[in-house]
Design a protein around this nucleic acid. Sequence first.
DNA 1: CCCGCCGGTACCGTTGAAGTAACCGGCACC
DNA 2: GGTGCCGGTTACTTCAACGGTACCGGCGGG
Lengths: 131, 131
Amino acid sequence: MTRTVPAPLPPDFFDPDCPVPTVPVLGGKKWAWRILRCLEGGPRRFSELRVPLVGITAKVLTESLRSMEQDGVLERTEFAENPPRVEYALTPLGRTLLGPMDALCDWSRANLAELLAAREASERASELAER
Amino acid sequence: MTRTVPAPLPPDFFDPDCPVPTVPVLGGKKWAWRILRCLEGGPRRFSELRVPLVGITAKVLTESLRSMEQDGVLERTEFAENPPRVEYALTPLGRTLLGPMDALCDWSRANLAELLAAREASERASELAER
DNA sequence: CCCGCCGGTACCGTTGAAGTAACCGGCACC
DNA sequence: GGTGCCGGTTACTTCAACGGTACCGGCGGG
């Protein structure tokens, strides 16, 4: 007899010690994706990054950059110049993230219409249920 | 003369109306990834999902499933049986998400060691700075 | 009559990311 | 001597996700 139901999932289906979910881009990092994208074309200065990242505050940008630096996906270089200059650049590790990231962005672009339609449909359904 | 610096990024580098960042998996959805993974092999019942998703509470699982249903990546089917049965299954749209997701998971697995090393290194550096 | 199972809901507390506002030191320019 | 820019820092607040506990209705079984 063929099995029509899948085998039950064991409690250790996910390794409880697996730190994959702690990967920076998978966390609630609203800006990380965009920052990576901005650095794709080469190093950028702090104030240069603030231009495309419309709405970000200095604090949040600082925090995001610091945490990404800690994760080794980008590098902070301070120049002892005048006026002071700080540059942020992708590390080789950070650059390898661009591929998978592109895959997800492509998915978003391709399926966004369908996704938004699903959201609207469920909104309309819940409005009907209210009455 | 060749340009050694990249062109400046314009303020409209990102479309301000672009809702790509609102895509479910890109938000701070701690469990969405795992839920998708659990449904990869076929439909699952509510209590069946609680087994592999160690530590999730009924409330959070309900919320996650509902929001993913709204986004059209999974489907909720209620059977008027006894005892009541509810099944969750991936939609075609949800199934297309598995590919890009795998890419990111592969990246995590491949580069996790390097990432954790970078974190430790920066921790050690900050401890040195404290003294 | 009471107990437990299924698939939740209600209420409330915690946490961490994000936002707001004010300020800083050093230097250049006027 | 005042003003402004650069690259932040500090303190405070807001907000949504997450977590904990308790409880529910309908049913079947003992």
